[in-house]
């Protein structure tokens, strides 16, 4: 091949790249050594002893054996935990619900009103329009009787009735059990007329709730 016919770019090209021989700066090596030192420390403190069943990074697990689970006893704490896991996606952590979609619990006359209705709603769920504090919501609440035990429902409701601005009496797991017995055959969620037809009976363990605002007789 003739050079003149070769593409012009080739003739103006530089030779293939070569290496310079500048040394690695000392400060860079020092920095890299410091990084390696940090890495060793990090691995010591955050490796969970290299165990396959330690997931919490703060657990320094050299020579660790799994503990037998201890239980938290405070019903409000347990109730809050259950509320956050089961209820907060609709009613929110703030208890304010979502305007127009999910009703609020904070200040609601269903929450602070007769406990028989409140327990019935949680056990069976709700369907169709429901007027809460002068706003009509039209949505579905699932039934919880298949998912939560009496004790858990009692903890959730006790928490809800005493959180935010609510100041109503606790609800005991016995009274939830008694209500559950009344509703065992019920399969569908409740509608508004059915809820309002429930006698405004105060369940045992909720005696002081009479101080809270009463549900309106009709809407």
């Amino acid at each position: 091949m003739d050079v003149a016919k070769a593409h012009g770019a080739l003739l103006r090209e530089h030779t293939e790249p070569r290496d310079g021989a500048a040394p690695v700066p000392l400060w860079l090596l020092t920095f890299f050594l410091a990084l390696a030192f940090w890495a060793g420390g990090y691995l010591f403190f955050y490796s969970g002893g290299f165990r396959g069943d330690v997931f919490n990074e703060n657990q320094i697990a050299w020579g660790y054996t799994p503990p037998s689970a201890g239980k938290a006893k405070d019903p409000i704490t347990l109730g809050k935990r259950l509320y956050v896991a089961n209820c907060a996606s609709c009613h929110q952590v703030t208890g304010l619900g979502q305007p127009g979609v999910y009703p609020p619990l904070d200040g609601s006359h269903f929450v602070n009103g007769p406990s028989s209705r409140l327990v019935a709603i949680v056990l069976n769920g709700v369907t169709g329009p429901l007027k809460v504090d002068n706003t009509v919501f039209n949505n579905n609440m699932p039934a919880w009787k298949g998912l939560l035990k009496d004790e858990q429902i009692a903890q959730i409701l006790t928490y809800v009735r005493q959180e935010w601005s609510n100041q109503s009496a606790p609800i005991s797991s016995e009274s939830v059990a008694a209500q559950r017995a009344k509703w065992t055959t019920r399969a569908d969620p409740l509608t508004e007329p059915e809820i309002l037809a429930i006698p405004t009976e105060e369940l045992p363990g909720a005696a002081s709730a009479s101080a809270s605002p009463a549900a309106p007789a009709a809407h």
Partner: peptide
């Protein structure tokens, strides 16, 4: 497990060495 996360975190930070070089 925590150790797998930590090992990769360290490797990711150590990437500063080749990147800076």
């Amino acid at each position: 497990p925590s150790w797998v996360q930590s090992a990769s975190i360290i490797a990711s930070v150590m990437m500063l060495i080749p990147v800076i070089a």
